[in-house]
């Protein structure tokens, strides 16, 4: 470090190592046209993805553009509420804003009929029984009117079906 020589009156002055400067900024976020279409269905407990007109992949939630083709997705595709776990992790650390009891499972769930897994929680099953290929279904929050967020799904739980054929989800592992 550079050597500093201070005027005598500063000698012995305690160095300030931290100042606390609270800063608050408010933003009004916009979901976007495509994601809004999706969220307006989520409040009705429906999962509606969108298909790329070029590569035909189905994205849920749609985000406005097909990320590989750079074109708007428009054709809506209603999906069921079931899917397959392609991978997961067991979380043992309390995370900001997360109410699940430890340990809990955060998984990649490939919804049937879609082409990109979403990340969500897995419930109603011991954490050490979760595995790749497990079939799961959405468990929605109570009530008829959901908030327009994927958190309207509380978590996914096993359906009890046999595991999915690896050929159906292998490219996502």
């Amino acid at each position: 470090m550079t050597e500093l020589s201070l005027p005598a009156r500063f000698e012995g002055v305690e160095m300030i190592q931290r100042v606390r400067i609270p800063a608050r900024l408010a933003y009004e976020f916009t979901a976007g046209v495509a994601t809004s279409r999706f969220l307006r269905q989520v409040v009705r407990k429906r999962l509606v993805g969108e298909r790329c007109p070029v590569c035909t992949k189905v994205y849920v939630p749609p985000r406005g553009a097909c990320p590989t083709c750079g074109v708007a997705t428009a054709e809506q595709v209603e999906l069921g509420h079931t899917g397959t776990i392609t991978s997961y992790c067991i979380v043992n650390v309390a995370f900001y804003g997360q109410a699940m009891d430890l340990p809990y499972v955060s998984a990649l769930v490939l919804l049937d009929g879609s082409d990109l897994p979403i990340m969500h929680l897995i419930g109603e099953v011991p954490y050490d029984e979760v595995h790749m290929g497990m079939r799961v279904e959405a468990v929605w929050e109570d009530g008829d009117e959901m908030e327009p967020t994927l958190e309207a799904i509380r978590y996914f739980r096993p359906t009890g079906e046999p595991d999915a054929d690896p050929a159906t989800y292998g490219e996502h592992v």
């Binding site: 916009t30 495509a34 809004s36 406005g64 553009a65 074109v71």
Partner: peptide, 9 residues
């Protein structure tokens, strides 16, 4: 209503 992706594309 448009997000950044939808403005830019």
């Amino acid at each position: 209503d448009r997000n950044e992706v939808e403005v830019l594309m």
